[in-house]
């Protein structure tokens, strides 16, 4: 059953495992596609960040690479005017509710947002949209991690990491602008029974969840 499939991405012929998602096929072969919420360990991708759009020849619309399985003979382009526009807008929307404080941020230089901006030549600045600083309190209660919800991009990596390793203390709450990563009843991490495993901080691609006294082991950059 598990054969291999050959497809073309950006003019390069690539052979990958059948059923692999396009995003991982590209990344494993050194072709970059912006992405935030994609998680290799999950069977069903969230496809929430809307950054990994690619063009597939013969398809009328760009598709998200994280949710698209590879197919034999598929011809994929990771760049096009439409794709860059979609990803650029999604990126700016993310930035509009992300507190930009790179100079003082613990994730500076290892931040996934910085990487995406660098790769795609996006500005790390909000120009077209109104910014939304929710000014939520920073949770400093845990001895292991600091949580600054104002920097959260809602990718869900911490929620999944917590579920696998930390007992599922973290989760999403609310909807729309009110959506945020929090604990049961909105309690502080210390009060919510956080085990202090630090998996969330290791998983956070930005500076929202950071390990205390230690610089992030370049969490975002490697993924």
């Amino acid at each position: 059953m598990s054969g291999e499939v050959t497809l073309t991405i950006d003019g390069r012929e690539i052979t990958v495992r059948e059923g692999e998602k396009l995003l991982w096929a590209a990344l494993d072969n050194g072709i970059y596609i912006p992405h935030l919420c994609a998680d290799r360990k999950e069977e069903k991708p969230d496809a929430a960040c809307r950054l990994c759009f690619v063009e597939i020849e013969g398809r009328p619309q760009p598709v998200t690479a994280c949710s698209e399985p590879v197919a034999a003979g598929m011809v994929v382009n990771t760049r096009s005017e439409r794709v860059d526009r979609l990803a650029g807008t999604a990126f700016e929307l993310l930035l509009s509710s992300h507190r930009l404080d790179c100079g003082k941020c613990a994730a500076n230089r290892s931040c996934a947002l910085q990487k995406i901006a660098r790769e795609r030549k996006f500005k790390l600045k909000v120009t077209r949209l109104r910014t939304l600083d929710r000014n939520l309190p920073v949770d400093d209660s845990s001895p292991v991690v600091t949580y600054d919800p104002n920097k959260c991009v809602l990718c869900g990596h911490c929620v999944r990491a917590c579920r696998r390793q930390g007992g599922g203390v973290l989760g999403f709450a609310g909807r729309g602008f009110e959506r945020r990563v929090t604990t049961f009843g909105g309690a502080s991490l210390a009060a919510a029974g956080c085990s202090g495993c630090g998996a969330c901080a290791a998983a956070c691609p930005v500076g929202a969840l950071t390990a205390k006294n230690v610089r992030l082991p370049n969490a975002g950059a490697k993924r």
Binding site: G167, V169, G171, F172, A173, R175, E178, T183, F184
Partner: peptide, 10 residues
């Protein structure tokens, strides 16, 4: 987890 319930309620 209680958090899963809280997610749905909120």
């Amino acid at each position: 987890t209680p958090m899963d319930v809280y997610s749905v309620v909120t």
